[in-house]
């Protein structure tokens, strides 16, 4: 029995079909990454999974009592809202201090509890979001482009943190990402999405799939190979698939 799954999920937003007959299932403890071009419905899929979007047809099934830790794509806190990191982690449910401290430590920002949210750097902010998602010891972490706005070392460090968290807590991880080469290597399974599931499987299988190549071209292949061989610079990106490079 999977933690969370969709059956023929179809989503319609503002009259447009963004997802059609999507079937995915996430099992306990696995890391699954969703890749796909802009506008392919990745974020919408996650939002449907957490219950923020209602399916036009099809179903979303969550295991009973499933605890979800959600890290949204963007969270802009208005500068007029004074809020400490500690206060943020107590929303909406007040937590014992020790629980908050522990979550912050697991997310690698144990020393930030008293800081104001609006004063945090991009990387610190994402880690605080991660800490918040860890509060209720989730069965599954759902991350929506959690490294947006981070530079490449920052993104890589963030993903290492995610792997640590999974090792410590044993939770499943479902994430959407543009940082293909980092993410693909860290994932057990990759789902390539473009309004529907184009292909899915282990990173190697997906990277070789013609559907995936049709979407991302060989540039990604290069980037993928790049990670596998641990080179430090990329090449062969003179076409417009730059979102595959992770340097946005």
């Amino acid at each position: 029995m999977s933690l969370i799954s969709t059956h023929n999920l179809t989503l319609v937003l503002d009259g447009q079909t963004v997802l059609k007959n999507v079937n995915i299932a996430i099992n306990r403890g696995e890391i699954v990454t969703i890749v796909g071009p802009n506008g392919s419905g990745k974020s919408s899929l996650l939002r449907a999974l957490i219950g923020a979007l209602k399916p036009a047809s099809g179903t979303v099934t969550r295991a009973e009592g499933l605890r979800i830790g959600y890290v949204p794509q963007k969270l802009q806190i208005d500068a007029t809202l004074p809020l400490t990191v500690h206060g943020f982690l107590n929303l909406p449910n007040r937590q014992p201090r020790a629980v908050v401290e522990d979550a912050l430590k697991k997310a690698g920002v144990g020393d930030l509890a008293k800081r104001q949210m609006v004063d945090l750097s991009g990387g610190q902010f994402q880690r605080v979001l991660l800490a918040r998602a860890l509060l209720n010891t989730p069965d599954i972490l759902i991350l929506d482009e959690a490294t947006q706005g981070l530079d490449q070392p920052g993104a890589a460090a963030f993903y290492r943190q995610i792997e640590d968290v999974r090792r410590d807590m044993g939770c499943a991880v479902l994430m959407v990402s543009h940082d293909l080469h980092v993410v693909m290597a860290a994932s057990d399974r990759v789902v390539c999405l473009n309004g529907h599931v184009c292909c899915e499987g282990t990173p190697e299988i997906v990277a070789d799939a013609p559907e995936y190549r049709a979407l991302f071209g060989t540039g990604t292949q290069g980037a993928f190979a790049l990670y596998r061989h641990e080179h430090t610079h990329s090449h062969d990106h003179d076409h417009d698939h730059t979102h595959c490079d992770g340097d946005h």
Partner: peptide, 19 residues
Amino acid sequence: WQALLSATLNPDLATASGL
């Protein structure tokens, strides 16, 4: 109060918390 603050921060985050 707590729920209003959460929804003010981010509607999706509030939804994920069951609000």
